[in-house]
């Protein structure tokens, strides 16, 4: 598939995922599955933009890794904060 065609399809996919997230925001209680779904969507969107819009897929390896790590770490934090709020609160308390 050409780069041009990938961009078109990716844009459409990102639009649909955003509408899906908005639907979740309006209709669903945040349970573990919803949290996981949201984290996965954030990760997917970020990785796709880094690789295709930013064109890092076949570019500098270090830059690509740094940018991609971001979209593994932040979604993981979303899930961890949902699963272990008290433990994280204890870890981040000053007293």
């Amino acid at each position: 598939m050409t780069h041009d065609r990938i961009l078109d399809r990716l844009w459409l996919t990102l639009m649909l995922l955003t509408l899906g997230s908005a639907w979740l925001a309006e209709s669903a209680e945040t349970g573990l599955l919803v949290t996981l779904a949201i984290a996965l969507v954030v990760s997917f969107k970020g990785l796709m933009i880094v690789d295709h819009f930013m064109e890092l897929r076949h570019a500098n390896v270090v830059l690509r890794r740094l940018m991609r790590i971001y979209f593994y770490v932040i979604p993981s934090l979303i899930v961890l904060v949902y699963l272990f709020p008290r433990q994280i609160a204890n870890l981040t308390s000053l007293s």
């Binding site: 598939m1 050409t2 780069h3 990938i6 295709h52 930013m54 064109e55 890092l56 897929r57 076949h58 570019a59 500098n60 390896v61 830059l63």
Partner: peptide
């Protein structure tokens, strides 16, 4: 470039 990226951009050290 036939692989989804413009020719000449597929270099492991290229910085956009």
């Amino acid at each position: 470039g036939g692989v989804g990226v413009p020719r000449g951009l597929s270099l492991p050290r290229r910085i956009p």
